[in-house]
Amino acid sequence: MKKTVFLGALTVAGLAAGASAAATLDDVKARGKLNCGVTTGLVGFAAPDANGHWDGFDVGVCRAVAAAVLGDAEAVEFVPTTGKTRFTALASGEIDVLARNTTWTLSRDVDLKFTFVGVNYYDGQGFMVPKGLGVSSAKELDGATVCIQTGTTTELNLADFFRANNMSYEPVPIETNAEAQQQYLAGACDVYTTDASGLAATRASFEAPADHILLPEIISKEPLGPLVRHGDNEWGDIVRWSLNALISAEELGVTSANIGEMAAAAGDNPEINRILGTEGNLGEMLGLDAGWAKAAIMAGGNYGELFEKNIGENTPIGLSRGLNAQWKDGGLIYSPPFR
């Protein structure tokens, strides 16, 4: 213990910033593990099970990247981060990639010097009300009491929305989602507002979910996606195209069930062939082996499979695809071509 700490601090302090922009890919390969930052727990997106095995939608992205780089979906060290520690953890190199429902904003991208490699979930702030309230649109909420988490952007969005629609409301400030559930169920507020995915998860935990409805209005844009540090574009490319591989796989009908068959030999669709490495040398360009995308898809399935398994309509959370459908189905999920 003492040895590693002090020697590490001393010697590395001597070398100082010299190697700051070292290749993350080499580090990850040398370590044999991907350090992936996740939340300390968010229903459907990341949570450990009773054996300490992490699961969830964001976790699926980590596993896909690990599989693409190291060939093993289990070669991930999950580093739980809170809203306060996540950015320093990434900036300091404690984690290689942050997949923690983080909204892509200009200041985070530019000022904090991170690269958002894509969007894996389009979220937005919504409203939940009891059915008994008889409200069918957020425009009818004039004078309502609203449970809202303090110090978040949701608070500001809410104020903007009510002002723009010339309505008044009475905020009931709460600290955590768990508190919000209790307050809302106890009738301390008429409306609970937070990210729509969070609302759905909260509603799913109610005893009678059907007694509560999510209003159709979504009042903010929250594109959530994985991010990496500035300064290592090669690594950013790997994470970006691992995510894109999952998205393209769904678009092209490659699933974890049929991938073995499809990857066995080059098929009719050249793009599938390029993704799965039976044609071309896309893997080589990324500095990975030819089967990288196959491994990434096999880790947890393609984008659609990940969605269905963790947050889709058959899970307790029961989110519909909505904005997160493939572009062909009217959603925003869209991958640049593999060429």
Binding site: T40, T202, A204
Partner: peptide, 21 residues
């Protein structure tokens, strides 16, 4: 600071879809 002490784990456990709520 995201160390999973009992309270941190409490949050993680409630993030399991089975025990949410």
């Amino acid at each position: 600071i995201a160390l999973l002490d009992p309270l941190g784990l409490n949050n993680a456990i409630r993030a399991d879809a089975n025990w949410n709520g």
